[in-house]
Simulated scan of single mutants.
Amino acid sequence: MGESTAPVPAPRGNPETPPLTAQELLVAACWLAEADPNPGKVWAEWEKHGVALLPLGRRFDAVRVPAERVHDVVVSDETETVAKVLRAWLDGPVIRDFRSSLGPYYVLIAPDADWDGPAERLTTGTYLGVPRPGHATMLSRWVVLPPHPGALCDSRYLRTLLTMTDSLRTVDG
């Protein structure tokens, strides 16, 4: 595989983005619910559990990134710091699994996005626990909410972020 001549992406989002309004949260939730052929089922799961299992491969895929990897590149495991850095770099939706202290991050990307990065891509045939936007749960939380319907992370920015993690590990090791 030849070396890419494409420029390395720089951060693209605004780390100081104001919180979404109630209307914006509802619009984002509607868009997410429509990832399932039966959006009513999603709303019922959100109402009952706060989290719904959404099928991947239709509206979005997810890249599962170990927490350690994210915390290494951010140089922090503090929630607000991680959110600011991921918002600045990825400018798209990220969910964190809190079932354990080392719970992974799930970066949402387009189903047709190229991905050859160092983390596992989850797609068709897989379901992801997605919390309802604007509602916290014990199982998972939004680290970065979708700023608008259809907003997804650019896989090039994620790849660059994870490559920086590899570079840091090489320097430290």
Rank of each mutant, 00 (worst) to 15 (best):
R12V: 11
A52V: 01
C30R: 15
W115D: 00
L56A: 01
G40R: 11
M164G: 12
W43S: 05
H71M: 11
S100F: 11
T163M: 01
G173F: 03
R69V: 09
P118W: 04
S76E: 10
A119R: 03
E80S: 15
D36F: 08
V130I: 13
A52Y: 00
R12T: 15
S167H: 10
K41F: 08
L139E: 15
L102Y: 08
G13K: 06
M1E: 02
P131C: 12
V171Y: 09
P147H: 13
V82E: 05
R156Y: 08
A88M: 11
R69Y: 07
E120N: 06
D77Y: 01
T81M: 04
P66D: 05
V42D: 00
P66L: 00
M138S: 15
H49P: 04
P104I: 00
A28V: 14
E16H: 15
W43H: 02
S167E: 14
V51H: 04
Y106P: 01
V63I: 09
G92S: 10
R59S: 14
P131G: 11
G129N: 10
P133C: 08
S76G: 01
A28R: 05
D114A: 12
A67G: 01
S101Q: 14
P11M: 02
N14T: 10
V171S: 03
D61N: 02
A35G: 06
D116S: 13
H71W: 13
M138P: 08
D36Q: 09
T163F: 05
W89K: 00
L158S: 03
G40V: 13
Y106M: 00
Y106I: 10
R12C: 13
N38A: 09
D114G: 09
L145W: 14
G117Q: 08
W43D: 07
P147C: 12
D154K: 04
R12Y: 08
